[in-house]
Computed example of a mutant assay.
Amino acid sequence: MTLEIDTGTGLMPVHLWEPSSGTGPAILLLQEIFGVSDYIKQRAADLAALGYFVLAPEIYWRLDETELDESAPDLLERALAVVGRLDWDTAVWDSVAALEYLRGRDEGVATVGFCFGGGLAYNVAAVSRPDALVSYYGSALPGLLDLEVDAVSLHHFGDSDAYLTTDVVDQIVKTVDGPENEIYRYPDAGHAFDNPMPAFHHAAASALAWERTTAFLSHHLPPERGSR
């Protein structure tokens, strides 16, 4: 389902997946640099099947770049060009507007983000305090470590990530670690290892990280919470 929500400065297109139960907590799902791609839509469907309302906003909507050709040989270059034109602070507040839309359901909400969305989810968690945060290899994290995130959080990193090197991840880990937080590193996995594109995908790391993600969400934001 596609609808629009009011950001205060315009109507942002968002995609919504509902659980079969019709009730339950919500997840704000934030895209990679490739937009709300088939991969992101599949992850949204996976989460909805677990019992969550899932909302994925079109973060590029102000740039009129909501649909990137996923079959284009220069997809990565095009995506990098688009994200280079994006105003980060505006993207954060657009995401917060989406989070507040979900919070209005009063059944709990988590933020989940991949790559670009992993950093965006972290920033959103710092300013809007969801119940939980899941960040997959958040590419913007090195520049966000001065922010304070109170939400319990789960972070995934690949040890062969060319964008977030081992030294950088070490620094991130020192900053984001906490009593209830979970941080995992995956040997031989590179950046975007959960993405099914052959250039990125690491099957073993993807499967294990997803198992940990669903367990984390089930513990901190159980789907049955909404029906009680």
Rank of each mutant, 00 (worst) to 15 (best):
V149M: 08
A97W: 05
P130M: 08
G118I: 05
E58I: 00
F53L: 15
R105N: 13
G84N: 04
Y52K: 04
L30W: 10
V96I: 08
G35F: 07
R78E: 12
L50I: 11
G143D: 07
E58R: 05
D64C: 06
L80K: 10
L75Q: 10
Y39H: 15
V82N: 07
G51Y: 14
R103I: 02
W88Y: 06
R103Y: 00
L102A: 08
S95E: 15
D146P: 10
F34R: 02
Y136R: 01
T90V: 13
L133Q: 03
L47Y: 11
Q31R: 15
P73L: 09
L141Y: 01
Y137H: 15
L50E: 11
Y52F: 08
S37F: 09
Q42S: 05
D146H: 15
L76I: 15
A132W: 00
W93M: 02
L80P: 00
V83S: 06
P57W: 06
A45Y: 15
E67K: 15
L76Y: 04
D106I: 02
A45L: 14
P142E: 01
L28I: 09
R105F: 03
L133P: 04
A126Y: 01
L68W: 10
N123L: 00
G104F: 02
G51E: 01
L145A: 04
A44S: 11
E67Q: 15
L133H: 07
S71K: 14
G51W: 09
C115T: 02
G119C: 02
A125W: 01
L120G: 08
D69G: 10
L75M: 06
Y52R: 04
L145Q: 12
L28P: 10
W61I: 01
A110E: 01
E148N: 12
A72Y: 03
F116T: 01
F53T: 07
L145H: 02
F34L: 08
I33Y: 03
T90L: 11
